[in-house]
Amino acid sequence: MSDSPRPDDAASGPESRDVAQPSASEVFGAALGGAARRAGLDPAEGKSTGHVVWRAMGGWRGIFESVLPGLVFVITYTVTIDPATGDGDLLLSLVLSVGIAAIFTVVRLIARQPIAAAVGGLVAVGVAAAFAAFTGEASNNFVPGFVTNVVYGSALLISAFVGWPIIGLAVGFLMGDGTAWRRDKRKRRVFFWLTIVWAGLFAARLLVQVPLYVADNVTALGTLKLVMGLPLFAPLVAVTWLVVRALYPRADRDPSYGR
């Protein structure tokens, strides 16, 4: 019997297995691209920029789920402020806020609709409420949000400066480009700055809100958190989408794309 290697043996050798193994950046980029597609950011659907932004926000339900719990907390706490102490009813504010987030989740469960966003919102509201209740300080309801902004902003900033901007990874796999965009200087530069701008959004939230937290101005802090949420997120999604369209003009072959 011949000892010469068979073709299928060679194909299954260590080198071929190494080639088949995706890199960490490819795995991460594919995950980001998949998440963006599930959020409605799929260029293959040929949707308009306005539709893409609306889907990214989750429509009316997504807006209510994102805004209402925080809005109720701010309004309730402000309305119940005792002039003598300067403090509002923290327990009532937290109960109403968490309760509304829970209702949104239950409604989705009953309607058998995707509950990931609602559950994520409920967990975020619940963790913030638990932290505030445990410390007895209403302003601590916003601390988990600060941590989230630090983590996201840092990840975006670091990824940009190490040459693997997160926006580029997400867009590359969303547009079927993989990591090939890194060989294009123009795309590399644009994705770098887009990632920096997104990092700037999280940094701006911290720069504006942390001083209000230190001053224990719960009403102003809660109000600005809402103002710096979806009202800033939506335009940035639109700008990012428009830039991506400019970078990938082949998508414009679909006459309905980006109208």
Rank of each mutant, 00 (worst) to 15 (best):
D252T: 04
E137R: 15
G33Y: 02
T223K: 04
T78C: 06
L32R: 05
L236F: 14
R250M: 00
T76C: 13
R183I: 07
R183G: 14
F142H: 04
G40M: 02
E15K: 14
A11G: 15
G121Y: 00
S16E: 15
T135A: 09
V107G: 07
G136Q: 12
A10R: 14
F146V: 06
A130V: 09
L212Q: 09
F131C: 05
E15S: 15
L169W: 09
S66R: 00
I63S: 08
A238W: 02
L232K: 01
A138F: 07
A56H: 02
G172W: 03
S25E: 13
S139Y: 00
A130M: 13
T80G: 10
L242I: 13
F202I: 00
P249W: 06
P165D: 05
A128L: 08
G29H: 09
R38P: 03
M228H: 04
N217L: 08
V227A: 08
V53C: 01
K225L: 08
T148I: 15
K187H: 08
I158N: 06
V72D: 02
R183W: 08
Q209M: 10
V79A: 13
V106S: 11
G58R: 05
I115W: 12
G153H: 03
L92Y: 08
F131L: 13
S16R: 15
R245W: 00
V227K: 00
L41F: 04
S16C: 11
V106F: 14
V208G: 00
A102D: 07
V190H: 00
P14L: 14
Q209C: 03
S48D: 10
T78L: 06
P165F: 03
W164C: 01
V147Y: 11
W241C: 04
R61S: 11
A118V: 07
L247S: 01
Y213C: 02
A128D: 04
F146I: 04
W181M: 05
V127F: 09
R61V: 11
P114E: 07
K47P: 00
R6A: 13
F192S: 03
V67A: 02
W54V: 02
G86M: 13
T105D: 05
F131D: 04
Q21T: 15
L32Q: 06
R108E: 13
A44Y: 03
R61W: 12
S23I: 09
L122Q: 04
A56Q: 03
I196G: 10
A20G: 10
H51M: 01
A101I: 04
N217H: 11
R205S: 05
T195W: 01
P114F: 07
R37P: 00
A155L: 15
Y257R: 03
L224W: 09
L174R: 03
V95T: 14
R6L: 12
A35K: 07
M228K: 03
F142Y: 13
L169C: 11
D87A: 14
A39D: 07
D8T: 11
V151A: 14
L94Q: 02
A11P: 10
P231A: 13
P22K: 12
S66Q: 02
V125D: 01
A155C: 15
R108C: 11
D18F: 15
V214G: 06
R186M: 08
V19I: 15
S159Y: 06
G59S: 06
F233C: 09
L221P: 10
S66V: 00
A246K: 11
F192P: 01
A251Q: 02
L157V: 03
V27C: 12
F104V: 10
A31P: 02
D9S: 15
A39L: 10
A129V: 12
L212D: 06
